[in-house]
């Protein structure tokens, strides 16, 4: 750790008591209850609003408090280390969440679609149930589920906007690293500049993704419901896009804090946490680009 050897500043902070956990639980419950109400058509999308508002408020208050305490210098290096470890393990859990969907992608590509096409061990599956299905990837299955009226669909050309997006994210990974060095070196202006660049790139990426989705739905016949290809494509890229958005928002918050003069060259957990998160989002995209768009 960067500052493991810096002098320690005292006590392991145990907060006295806090209303946020219970608030957070209520918020989560409200969000999910809203979703239940909406999905069961008991009412419209607005049923999601109360929970969303509550959750946003909660996050704001909770983080505000933590930042406040931090600025008061209550946290010693050991607390700092706890936060770091916590963030790393949280990111690991995110990795495993994506792993589930990558697992689904590989299962579909390597096993189920070929099986349905009569390759491998399940010859009769094809012979009896799905004759004349070749089982080649990309596929929306023997039922030609979703896609255009005639059940066909096209996939996205990797070396158009997706490649550009790859470039964008890689650059943003670079800029955030530069920003980090600037922070370490105490060059605040440069820090602010490159941090801004980073989240701007992030939002650009999201914008381009949205544009791509539009194309896919309008012209390619590639939709969430376009068989297992559509399912894996949109769930993987969708969850990734969501994470990019969250990451970009967090970067923006960090940027605002930089403007407010937070963070010292050797004490800036929040900054590092967010940049780790950003790199994680970056790496996930590389896998997406290779296995979803390209190969």
């Amino acid at each position: 750790m960067t500052d493991a050897h810096a002098p320690d500043t005292g006590h392991y902070y145990v907060p006295h008591h806090s209303p946020y956990p219970i608030l957070g639980s209520v918020a989560l419950f409200t969000v999910m209850w809203g979703a239940v109400v909406y999905l069961n058509d008991w009412s419209g999308l607005w049923s999601l609003i109360p929970g969303a508002v509550l959750l946003a408020l909660l996050f704001f208050l909770w983080f505000a408090t933590v930042i406040g305490e931090n600025q008061q210098g209550i946290y010693n290096l050991q607390v700092d280390r706890s936060f770091r470890m916590g963030m790393m393990w949280f990111i690991f859990s995110e990795v495993m969440f994506f792993a589930a969907f990558f697992g689904a992608l590989f299962y579909a590509r390597v096993l189920s679609v070929p099986w349905l096409g009569g390759h491998g061990v399940k010859i009769f599956t094809n012979y009896v149930l799905w004759p004349h299905f070749e089982g080649l990837w990309p596929s929306n299955g023997p039922g030609h589920v979703g896609g255009r009226a005639d059940g066909t669909f096209n996939v996205m050309a990797p070396f158009g906007i997706p490649a550009l997006n790859t470039l964008i994210l890689l650059t943003s990974g670079l800029t955030v690293t530069i920003a980090h060095h600037a922070l370490r070196g105490g060059r605040r202006a440069m820090l602010a500049l490159f941090l801004a660049l980073t989240f701007l790139l992030g939002f650009t990426f999201v914008g381009l993704q949205i544009h791509e989705y539009g194309e896919a739905y309008r012209t390619l016949g590639l939709r969430l419901s376009t068989g297992v290809y559509g399912s894996t494509f949109f769930m993987l890229t969708g969850f990734h896009g969501l994470h990019v958005t969250i990451g970009a928002i967090m970067l923006t918050v960090i940027w605002l804090r930089v403007i407010k003069g937070h963070f010292s060259p050797n004490r800036h957990f929040a900054f590092e946490a967010v940049s780790w998160y950003w790199h994680f989002v970056d790496v996930v995209w590389l896998f997406l680009f290779v296995f979803v768009y390209w190969l």
Binding site: G141, V145, G227
Partner: peptide
């Protein structure tokens, strides 16, 4: 989505 439906390749 058709993760778990054969007709869609799942």
């Amino acid at each position: 989505t058709t993760f778990f439906t054969a007709a869609g390749g799942g």
